[in-house]
């Protein structure tokens, strides 16, 4: 692949296919999809609704098996969930019975990290996502945007090598969405990690991505890849931004 350079990719999907079978009906969601992600790269998968983005994410995460094909993480085959991969969900997947603090330090707690150490660590990420003062609140009391911030802090706090983000801002209003995009961009520049980010929003993709992977409709495959070589933080109305926007719109329209 032209972008993978000399270093081995941290994530590699090889010919991944997925077919759901339900009592005679079968639905082919992913078809021979290949994809690779380099370390510290911010890759955005941009695809239409219901095309199998969440399914692909679950397969990369090891939560669901592929029908055929393989996924490699740091050179090893993914077969079960690996805490080195952190997941941020489309809908809030916070533990409703735990406070913000206990949600965020959940991962370290499962690894039996001493209380003081993991509290400090969790506090660092709570501060980073801008939720200082809400440590004791239960998720039910938080707004949608705040919940997603907790989800991001929780994923970061487990020290993953890769963050998988599945339309984390899909359910937020436009205003909150912009501020969350800023937040993610800021966090990413301070805590460099590999990010695989899913969205169906073109602007969001251009604002965040080093590289955008355009996905086709179901059964899903990679349509095209676009490198976004604009200085960060990006300006939604700069010429470079609008140019890429136009290119992507064209690509999506051509096949319609």
């Amino acid at each position: 692949m032209e972008h993978s350079g000399k270093v081995a990719p941290i994530i590699e999907c090889r010919n991944v296919s997925k077919t759901f079978k339900n009592k005679g009906n079968s639905l082919e969601v992913l078809q021979n999809l290949s994809l690779s992600v380099r370390e510290n790269e911010f890759v955005v998968l941009l695809g239409p609704g219901q095309c199998g983005k969440t399914t692909l994410m679950n397969i990369i995460a090891g939560l669901e098996p592929a029908t055929s094909g393989e996924v490699f993480f740091q050179g090893e085959r993914v077969a079960k969930p690996n805490p080195k991969l952190g997941m941020v969900y489309q809908t809030t997947a916070l533990f409703p019975w735990l406070s913000v603090m206990k949600n965020v330090d959940f991962g370290p707690r499962m690894r039996h990290m001493p209380r003081k150490e993991r509290r400090e660590k969790a506090q660092h990420f709570i501060d980073l996502v801008g939720l200082t003062g809400f440590e004791k609140a239960y998720p039910i009391k938080l707004s949608g945007g705040m919940r997603q911030r907790v989800g991001i802090a929780r994923a970061y706090c487990n020290d993953p090598a890769v963050l998988l983000m599945d339309e984390p801002f899909g359910h937020l209003d436009a205003q909150t969405r912009y501020s969350m995009q800023d937040a993610i961009e800021r966090i990413w520049s301070r805590e460099k990690r590999t990010v695989v980010f899913i969205t169906n929003n073109i602007e969001e993709a251009i604002f965040l991505a080093d590289r955008i992977v355009l996905l086709t409709n179901c059964p899903t495959n990679v349509k095209k890849e676009i490198l976004v070589d604009l200085p960060r933080p990006r300006d939604y109305v700069s010429r470079g931004f609008l140019k890429i926007r136009e290119d992507i719109s064209k690509i999506f329209e051509i096949t319609k």
Binding site: L63, P81, N82, Y89, F106, M110, N158
Partner: peptide, 28 residues
């Protein structure tokens, strides 16, 4: 909720931890 179970597994929870930290509180 299977999504919560998945989330806990992604964060490194083992079988017994899943039971104590997710299944039991879900049932309360």
């Amino acid at each position: 909720d299977p999504v919560l179970i998945g989330a806990a597994r992604m964060l490194g929870a083992g079988k017994f931890q899943l039971f104590v930290h997710i299944i039991l509180p879900s049932a309360i």
